[in-house]
């Protein structure tokens, strides 16, 4: 079963990279969301897949039954999901605010911090004109 998930992770990573290379910031964020799914599946897959019971210990017992799933990757994924959710939200709000300020979601046109040399010259000209 692990190889199928491995291939699926590859598909998700391909989609992630392709989307994140887009100049539209919204599509970049779509890529970010797919990246977190790919990462979680990587963790799940490398912990070993078993079609098993949840990692719980029955009342009265002190040891779990032998056929439970691996709890370690699950703990990692649980935190990863919440972290990537907050990253996703942050990116989305950033896009929203950027659009309000610059009226664009085209990252090629977001040049406030690192203006292109042509853009910088134009800016300097505008400032001189003011």
């Amino acid at each position: 079963m692990e190889p199928i998930i491995a291939v699926l992770v590859g598909v998700l990573m391909t989609a992630t990279v392709y989307l994140m290379l887009d100049r539209n910031f919204v599509r970049f964020i779509f890529g970010l969301a797919l990246l977190s799914h790919a990462a979680n599946l990587v963790i799940l897959d490398s912990g070993g897949l078993t079609r098993a019971r949840p990692p719980l210990i029955a009342p009265g017992e002190s040891l779990p039954l032998p056929d439970i799933s691996n709890a370690v990757p699950q703990a990692l994924m649980l935190t990863a999901i919440v972290i990537s959710f907050s990253l996703f939200t942050f990116a989305l709000v950033l896009a929203f605010r950027t659009y309000q300020e610059l009226e664009t979601v085209d990252t090629d046109r977001m040049r406030a911090a690192e203006p292109s040399s042509a853009g910088a010259a134009a800016d300097a000209g505008r400032r001189a004109a003011d």
Binding site: A6, G10, L12, M13, V17, L21
Partner: peptide
């Protein structure tokens, strides 16, 4: 863009296949 994306995707798949080829360490 697609070439870069596919390179990353295929590499990640191969790494993961290599990793899952041996069962995980059970100690932890």
């Amino acid at each position: 863009n697609a070439i870069v994306a596919v390179t990353v995707g295929v590499s990640v798949t191969l790494v993961l296949l290599a990793v899952t080829g041996s069962p995980p360490q059970p100690d932890l």
